[in-house]
Design a protein around this nucleic acid. Structure first.
Lengths: 226, 226
DNA sequence: ACCTGATTCAGACGACTGTTTGAATCGTAC
DNA sequence: GTACGATTCAAACAGTCGTCTGAATCAGGT
């Protein structure tokens, strides 16, 4: 247990500091002293700072993306031949992040801020991590959105999903106290996931800007995941 | 002239590197060697790294915000008693960044990426800079949007403007080759400012999520600028 | 030619960076 | 209790960081 204890304490402290100060702005000494462990423990358990970032990322992103896909499976199975509603799809994409946050309380409160920041980190290894993990999720959700919005080309959907991820990640960084209604009384003025979903759903329904037949072919994840 | 020459070369090099690697990820030695000047020139002309960031920020944000307000003045003067269209307001907000970029070509190509990143920098001085410079712009645009969207409360508008800034900054960071149509042929698949404006205009028109009379009072810039 | 203030220069300051070492300590199986 | 692999420890590695110094170089006015 002592292994996992030290390892987890390092990961949690790193998650918090990466969320607050970014990757380059966080020192390993800051992490280990916040975690109450020896500096060399990072090298012993992870090897390098990059590998630590990878571990922080892996601990959370796996479950989130798994849940995203499960929810998408659920609503697709429950939907008629036209597929799920736009709002359902967006909620399947966004809410796993919020729910994970609620489940964690305390120690994981920084998670949502971390995942928001991750999307903007100017560090090569982070960009690679996101691309790799987002590939399947991006493909599935663009396909689902394409069914719900038959007037839009796939490249337009990918573009709008990019806009949406920007809005989501910025909201996560900025207002990490973002609240889900099921969490109890929504404090006045706190942006909720529902607000963002409603906002983005209306945005996705904007008419296509392209001539009707000019559907370009692009690799979905090429345009979306980065 | 030699003064301004060295000073400007440092600022331009810093702008580029801050845009690519972030503030904490950029060293002054990297900046000065990219600028082809002596390391101590930073200390001589700016004093500290924080002050350099301030100078980089100041060189661009002033003109952008000035132009934002000028355009808002223009469209408000030209509009009827109901005020300008939603799309006009959003374009007044977004396009100055794009046009500055077009005007600069070459050396300033990194500007849009820099301004996008600035909104996500986890550095205290940067957050302060944004808050200070955004105050008037935020107040004016929220007021204009409130006129164009009378069904929304000010706090809802501020919230949606926050979402929009997230979408904008993420797009600027991610796809700094974003193109304005007036720049010539739009390459297929490149997100344009027009796409983002249309996307966000539809989003702003989403019906209010609040009970009609529950308009909360908040300082606008408190909720928006950060 | 000389002075003066502005600017640039090489070099160094101490502090901090990620990484590594080898010995000390731990828990566990014999 | 003793041996052994896993883990933790203090200490140090070489390198980089932001900052600063004092001398050298420059420009322009007298």
């Amino acid at each position: 247990m002592s292994t996992n204890d030290t390892k987890d304490r390092i990961i949690s402290a790193a998650e918090k500091l990466f969320a607050e100060r970014g990757f380059a702005g966080t020192s390993l000494r800051g992490v280990t002293s916040a975690a109450g462990v020896n500096l060399a423990a990072v090298h012993y358990h992870f090897g390098t700072k990059d590998a630590l970032m990878q571990a922080v990322f892996d601990r959370r992103i796996g479950p989130v993306n798994k849940q995203r896909l499960e929810r998408l499976d659920q609503i697709e199975a429950a939907a008629g031949p036209d597929g799920p509603d736009l709002e359902e799809i967006l909620e399947a994409f966004m809410s796993p992040i919020m729910e994970l946050k609620r489940d964690l309380e305390g120690e994981g409160m920084m998670w949502s801020r971390f995942i928001g920041r991750v999307y903007t980190e100017p560090v090569e290894i982070v960009e690679t991590m996101i691309r790799d993990h987002f590939e399947e999720v991006g493909r599935r959700f663009v396909a689902a959105l394409a069914t719900a919005l038959p007037d839009l080309s796939e490249s337009e959907i990918a573009e709008r999903l990019l806009f949406s991820i920007g809005a989501l990640s910025h909201t996560l960084i900025d207002l990490h106290q973002i609240v889900t209604p099921s969490q109890g009384a929504v404090q006045a003025g706190a942006p909720t996931l529902q607000h963002l979903v409603a906002f983005l759903a209306a945005a996705f329904r904007a008419p296509s800007a392209q001539p009707a037949e000019a559907h370009r072919e692009t690799t979905v994840t090429e345009a979306v995941a980065s």
